[in-house]
């Protein structure tokens, strides 16, 4: 090879050596970690807390695969939060604009189709995993004392997940959404005694229209996320406090 020709890697290293002040970078990193392990830790004693969390023993009786569905559901919820916020940036909750804004997300927004599809599939998977989680807990009897409240919060989380699915399904405002919601509100209408009120409360009037879309949107992006977060936190705190169930 000729003397003057250098490989790309060599040139990259040379460029970094000439243009980047490595010593300053190392010092910056040192200052940062020094702050984390020094000043901040002196005040808040985070290191001890982190160590305690990381070394916390996990029971070997919790199955690697059947025991993972609760955690998977939690991860799916995190994915829903991120993709949902991204969708909310472009989505318009109006009867005239909703369908067009979904088309815009699918066709014009960069990776919009991917974000929407992931949100859609993660929602369905979340229903599936939360159901599997619940069946597993039921069949193994993990709801027995002292874990009854964890079970109650879990059932509420399943119901909230289903409500998420029901309200989210209307938002694209396409034919499938509209008529699936029609079926759903008809079922609400057949509840004895309060059916009439329930159906009117869901639809915001006599027919499915702008008011229905507005309240489903408010439920889906504001009310349900906070309610679900509250029960999720209780659920996780109780599991953390009591440890995972293991038969004696």
């Amino acid at each position: 090879m000729a003397e003057g020709r250098k490989s790309f890697a060599d040139r990259a290293v040379e460029w970094i050596a000439n243009n980047v002040n490595l010593r300053a970078l190392v010092n910056l990193f040192g200052t940062f970690t020094g702050f984390l392990y020094g000043e901040l830790d002196e005040r808040l004693e985070l290191g001890e807390a982190v160590k305690k969390q990381l070394r916390k023993p996990i029971s070997g009786r919790v199955s690697r695969w059947w025991g993972c569905f609760g955690g998977i559901t939690f991860l799916l919820f995190m994915i829903q939060v991120v993709t949902g916020v991204l969708l909310a940036i472009y989505y318009r909750p109006t009867v005239d604009g909703a369908h067009d804004s979904i088309l815009f997300i699918m066709n014009d927004v960069r990776y919009g189709w991917l974000i929407r599809s992931v949100h859609r599939y993660a929602a369905e998977l979340m229903v599936l995993t939360v159901m599997i989680h619940m069946v597993k807990i039921f069949l193994s009897g993990a709801y027995k004392p002292p874990r009854e409240l964890t079970w109650v919060s879990g059932v509420l989380l399943l119901l909230l997940t289903l409500t998420f699915g029901f309200t989210g399904y209307l938002l694209p405002w396409d034919q499938r959404a509209y008529w699936a919601t029609t079926v759903g509100t008809e079922m609400a209408h057949s509840v004895p005694l309060v059916g009439e009120y329930l159906s009117t409360a869901l639809k915001g009037g006599g027919v499915i229209g702008q008011r229905t879309l507005s309240r489903f949107y408010a439920l889906h992006v504001i009310i349900l996320p906070w309610v679900l977060t509250f029960f999720l936190m209780s659920h996780l705190l109780m599991i953390r406090r009591q440890g995972a169930y293991e038969p004696q």
């Binding site: 699918m106 992931v118 599939y121 699915g165 396409d174 509209y178 008529w179 499915i208």
Partner: peptide
């Protein structure tokens, strides 16, 4: 997602009932 990206039906039309109305699989 790559196998079948989320689809979108025609815009909602209250006057035009589709033939097969079904809820999501979990309902």
């Amino acid at each position: 997602t790559l196998w079948r990206p989320a689809g979108l039906a025609d815009k909602a039309d209250p006057l035009n009932t589709p033939e097969h109305v079904k809820p999501e699989w979990y309902f």
